[in-house]
């Protein structure tokens, strides 16, 4: 199979949802290592999508999950209240967590 055929095989049919799930599982921890990991994770998830529109939706999902995991991590560490009190700092982190996966997912636009 050519790369294009290989991508098409992954993005369609019954296996596509499983592939997307695997990409999600890999993308979330990727985003905890470095902020570029958020972009890379978004790209990884986006490339499993059948269309660019679908990729952006998956990027939004990943961003949402990242936000939830981040908030959960702070809650588990017992500092969620303090994190919220930081105001701008916390807001910037949430924005980055949500937006960067979407930007990464847009890479699907190249094909």
């Amino acid at each position: 199979m050519t790369p294009g055929e290989w991508a098409g095989w992954l993005r369609t049919g019954p296996r596509s949802e499983l592939v997307t799930l695997v990409a999600f599982v890999l993308a979330v921890p990727l985003g905890t290592v470095h902020w570029l990991g958020l972009v890379a994770g978004g790209a990884l998830v986006g490339l499993t999508a059948s269309s660019t529109r679908r990729a952006l939706v998956l990027g939004v999902y990943l961003g949402g999950v990242t936000v939830l995991v981040f908030v959960g991590w702070l809650w588990f560490a017992g500092v969620l209240g303090k994190a919220i009190a930081t105001g701008q700092l916390f807001g910037a982190s949430l924005a980055i967590a949500f937006v960067f996966p979407v930007l990464g997912a847009a890479v699907r636009g190249f094909g």
């Binding site: 981040f70 560490a77 500092v79 982190s93 980055i96 967590a97």
Partner: peptide, 15 residues
């Protein structure tokens, strides 16, 4: 970005 990135930002280093 280095300061505020979720998880890896230096602001969160000492959490």
């Amino acid at each position: 970005l280095a300061l505020t990135a979720p998880f890896s930002g230096t602001a969160w280093e000492t959490v």
